[in-house]
Design a binder for these strands. Structure first.
Length: 585
RNA sequence: GCGCCCGUAGCUCAGCAGGAUAGAGCGCAGGAUUCCUAAUCCUGAGGCCAUGGGUUCGAAUCCCGUCGGGCGCACCA
């Protein structure tokens, strides 16, 4: 249990005791929080207890604060309590309480911050990437992939059971187009002059390779046949090739999925019928005609009777079609079946990480999950806004090979996976992101990736130097965990230590909010605190980490340094970035 | 026309499921540095948190309206 959780429980216990003793009337204390105060001058912990309880208790907050303060003063480790502002209770703790955290960090290593928050919360299924197998992955896909993967790791660290999933859209029109485009390139590979790529086919040059590979495998086998005859085979060949490509890209970013779900397999298994049956039982299906959309009408609009889902019962604006007028299922119907399938497999929290262009899709899918999950399951959709790629402020030209987009491959080749992963998390997912190749590879303070890596490297460097200066000293993690921390008493050092101690709390809050970017921001804070402490050591020699001829004192400081390194490594681990021990250019 | 997202310092963005004088980087103006990597650090100026209402002891945060920007809008996937 983290320090903050411990004290939250102690405060809650105290309030319950006060209620039991009749000092307070029976109250709901669930809104009482214990958190680090915004300003360190306010002490170590702050609680809003008096303010939250004032109204239900029928007492002014300051009066209430006085009586609560008396009781809280008896808690272990509490050395003082102030009542501040509108009724905050600020607790000061013995430094030892914080210092106890350091050996915990050193013993846990990068597992520090792992929590049991997700235990018993039900399994989480997180779907991300799900790029259509019709071309290489692009900058936009990269963002979704990284956000999804980091979120999954974050949830795992917070103790949730997580399935990482990719939905493979291998049926329908888009893959048919892929097949036709590939067939064209196949004919080209066999010597035919195909001229310009016709509209309705993918123009990207990446399909040349696929066409050639098909020709190499099958020769002229598909030339004289009709489209009906060659399409399934060519389609499957092309999908396999595209998926190889995509999986290659993902793996070079260190991203893997536990499950690849095939849309076609799902449809063929009868899952769509099964899901619709469930909706039918609940009286949520009907044949009907939709109102024309407001505003300007599509040219070919006409009223059509269709099978509709009453999504408006669950907060959607209008009911949504499940069958087209020709009787075949819509994509939405398949997607309902897919989400139903995820629930059937045991997940109670579903997360979809998708591009912002899916924004219009959120309400209907949440409606479907609510309907089909009978209210016991929730769907959170993380919409990732656009990424624009620049080089020194100039928009990077689109990759001709890819068709029109900057590919993920280009980005990895240019800046590497670590930089890419970190930078993609330096914005909230619902903010547009500008990625400038020149800036993110620059070695300076305005490059957050570098700044954090540098802090980690500096820690490693100190440890190296110390081990050289004191050969044979107990400077490994076991030895450092046993270090005497009494001398660790400057406010600068305590500030770093307190920041490290909030890491488990950061994990819990970020996991609960499904916001992996918070990890990246926290790491920048840790790095800043460490760089500041480092520089302080220049003027104040007592703050230096290595003290000549004083092994014990050095060991004390190294414990903190190593703690910083471990917490940074732990955080980088969550977002999939490799911590480096050296940064010399 | 409708829905979703966004609007915080000159610029780029944080702001922890309402809390105490609104934070960081860049840029600008000063300053530190024989030293564990000067790739770092410190100080300062700079904000009616788009705007008008509402809820609350308390709002950048929640609700409604307005303005501005992005995305999406029958049977496509």
């Amino acid at each position: 249990m983290s320090l903050f959780q411990t004290y939250t429980e102690l405060v809650h216990d105290t309030l319950r005791a006060m209620i039991a003793e009749g000092v307070l009337p029976p109250l709901d204390i669930s809104r009482v929080q214990v958190e680090p105060p915004r300003d360190a001058a306010h002490g170590d912990l702050a609680t809003n207890a008096a303010m939250v309880l004032a109204k239900p208790a029928g007492k002014p907050p300051r009066d209430l604060a006085n009586s609560i303060a008396e009781w809280l003063g008896a808690l272990p480790g509490v050395t003082g309590i102030d009542i501040a502002g509108p009724g905050f209770l600020n607790l000061r703790l013995q430094p030892e309480i914080w210092k106890r955290e350091l050996p915990l960090i050193l013993r846990a290593g990068t597992a520090y911050g792992n929590s049991g928050r997700g235990k018993g919360q039900g399994a989480v299924n997180i779907e991300y990437v799900s790029a259509n197998p019709t071309g290489p992955m692009t900058a936009g896909h990269a963002r979704g992939a990284i956000v999804g993967d980091a979120l999954a790791s974050l949830l795992v660290k917070a103790g949730y059971t997580v399935t990482r999933e990719y939905y493979l859209n291998d049926s329908g029109n888009q893959v048919a187009v892929l097949a036709r485009s590939t067939h064209l390139r196949y004919r080209e590979a066999l010597g035919e002059a195909i001229g310009d790529i016709p509209a309705g086919c993918y123009p990207g040059e990446y399909l040349k390779d696929v066409g050639q590979a098909l020709a190499a495998r099958d020769g002229g086998k598909w030339l004289s046949l009709s489209e009906d005859e060659w399409l399934p085979a060519v389609r499957d060949f092309a999908i396999a090739a595209m998926m190889d490509d995509i999986k290659g890209d993902l793996s070079s970013m260190g991203i893997r999925h536990d499950v690849f779900s095939s849309e076609r397999a799902l449809v063929q298994s009868g899952a769509v019928e099964k899901a619709l049956e469930t909706l039918q039982h609940r009286g949520l299906l009907y044949e009907g005609v939709l109102e024309p959309p407001k505003g300007k009408l599509p040219d070919d609009w006409e009223p059509r009777p269709q099978l509709l889902f009453k999504s408006s019962d669950f907060g959607d604006d209008v009911d949504r079609p499940l069958k087209k007028s020709d009787g075949t299922y819509t994509y939405f119907a398949g997607d309902i079946a897919y989400h139903y399938d995820k629930l059937q497999r045991g997940s109670t929290t579903l997360i979809d990480v998708v591009g912002a262009d899916h924004g219009g899709y959120v309400k209907r899918m949440q409606a479907a999950v609510a309907a089909v999950g009978e209210g016991r399951a929730a769907l959170d959709v993380k919409l990732c806004q656009m990424v624009s790629v620049l080089d020194n402020g100039v928009p990077v030209k689109m990759s001709k090979r890819a068709g029109t987009f900057i590919t993920l491959r280009d980005m990895i080749d240019r800046i590497g996976k670590d930089v890419l992963r970190f930078v993609m998390l330096t914005r909230r997912n619902d903010q547009t992101l500008e990625l400038d190749y020149a800036k993110v590879t620059e070695q300076s303070k305005d490059n957050p990736v570098f700044y954090v890596q540098y802090a980690h490297a500096r820690c490693c460097s100190v440890l190296r130097h110390a081990r050289e200066a004191f050969p044979g000293a107990a400077f490994d993690d076991v030895g450092l965990a046993a270090a005497d921390l009494v001398a660790l008493d400057s406010s600068e050092e305590m500030a770093v230590l307190k920041l490290l101690a909030t890491w488990p709390r950061v994990i819990d809050l970020a996991a609960e909010a499904h916001e992996p970017h918070r990890i990246a921001f926290y790491l920048q804070e840790v790095a800043a605190a460490f760089h500041a402490l480092w520089t302080k050591g220049r003027e104040d020699t007592t703050l230096r980490f290595i003290h000549d001829n004083d092994e014990a004192l050095t060991q004390t400081h190294l414990a903190l340094v190593r703690g910083v390194a471990l917490v940074i490594a732990s955080g980088l681990g969550v977002i999939g970035v490799t911590p480096v021990a050296e940064l010399r250019a």
